[in-house]
Amino acid sequence: MRVPRPLYFIVVLAIAAAAGWYFFRPSAPVPGETVTVYYTKLDGTTLGTWDVSFRPAQPGESDAQRLHDLAVYAALQAVAGPPPDIAAVHFPTGTRVRNVSVNGSTATVDLSREVGSASGGTFQENGEFKGLVYTLTGIPSINAVQITIEGQTVGTLPGGHLELDAPLRRSDW
């Protein structure tokens, strides 16, 4: 049986339209999850917060993977600090989060060596780590944060004041 030519074109166009829609369909915004990021105000002790949204769960994503991603996101936000118009204690310029892992209830945050580059006093160390620890321990199931620098456990930052060899908790402040 010979298929009429118009029908042939209609079928091809329908397939092309369907394929085009499939490949280039807009992603509908899906509500994610809110992460509260803490920062230490310039009085050196008081905490402020701002909320950032974290992406929705991905299909097939395990709880462990999502917890890890959430911890990475939270650590990066905390190290970056609040929006620039908010006065806060900041980590030194160039400080990067090299890695974050979660083992049990302890998150290990590996920072780049720039974290020790500022010759700030107790004020800076206390404020920057307080914000980071409060942010990560705000994630359910994380209650302690181990800091490492360039992959190494350290007692303090170079010429530093805060003890970093053991996990830090909110109760340290």
Partner: peptide, 20 residues
Amino acid sequence: HIVLITTSAPEVIGFSVGNA
């Protein structure tokens, strides 16, 4: 699933695979 860019501000820019 996430790509994060930390700017010099510093500020975090977050992109998620599959989310516009």
